[in-house]
Amino acid sequence: MRKFIIKRILLSILILVLSAFIIYALLRMLPTSYLETIAMNKSMQPGSKTYTEWMEQLSSTYGMDKGIIGGFFSWAANAVRGDFGDSWLWTVPVVEKFNSCIWLSFIMGVISFFFELIIAIPLGIIAATKQYSRTDYAITIIAIAGISLPTFFFASLLKLVFCVKLKWFDLGGLIGRNYDHLDSFHQFLDKAHHLVLPIIVLVVLSIGGLMRYTRTNMLEVLNSDYIRTARAKGLSEKNVIYNHAFRNTLIPIVTIVGGSLPGLFSGALITETLFSISGIGFVSYQSMKAGDIPFSMFYMVFLAVLTLAGNLIADILYAVVDPRVRIS
């Protein structure tokens, strides 16, 4: 077991290094005219560094003067020490800006994840146990509709109905106009009030996938021999489903859920942009649009790390939860 984990971790590190290299190479291959234009625009703003200084910073952090491989190593040497350079757009060190907005995204991710789990899994199980009934059809269609909804359309619809027509919520932002006048408890409530719509959007869009996955797995389990044996033994249907079928369904679900835990940090780009919430998704989107190479590089490597961590966790959990995998 331990050997398995260590092997996987080493493999993941190798993949991470390769992905970081590819990302770095791609960013290096952006036409120099593009980088120079950005640096030129930056240097023309009042009180900023000169053009040569911007390009120097870029060169020193990213080794633009060396070849791609040499440059990658010089960037990696800095990155491992935690120095990702200064963000061009936000003019503070990349790590500092990152710290200031990551927790908001994480909280939003956690809350929506929690709701997603308590809504999708029970509904998926109900759909499987009542296959081909009306409930099943309804739940399946809701799930597929959830996957098919474009984020921006749904968010705009919600904005139209709840913010403009009903006036229950503000159109965007994290805090209201009176934020400074409120005491800390009401400040907390104010923020929560503003997060309601974004979290609804996030939840509705993600329950679809999980619901159908649960349903498929549950169906497979329900058709298996041991469930038939349990029924033949005369156990009550409730016992059969909640004690036996459910546990076996949980195996793939737990691995998926565990695998998506790191994804909670990644932030939902579109939702945050539409609701003007300064989480990591929105901030990174602005940076990428503005051609902020240090921040973009950091964010992409960060996402790569998250994906690999998610895969690793999923594999480990799979081995933990399913004894059959451990033995093979």
Partner: peptide, 17 residues
């Protein structure tokens, strides 16, 4: 490796370029 590389940010950067 391809799975690791985040596709959305990559496309956004290329689009901005």
């Amino acid at each position: 490796v391809f799975y690791c590389i985040p596709s959305m940010p990559l496309i956004i950067i290329l689009g901005a370029a």
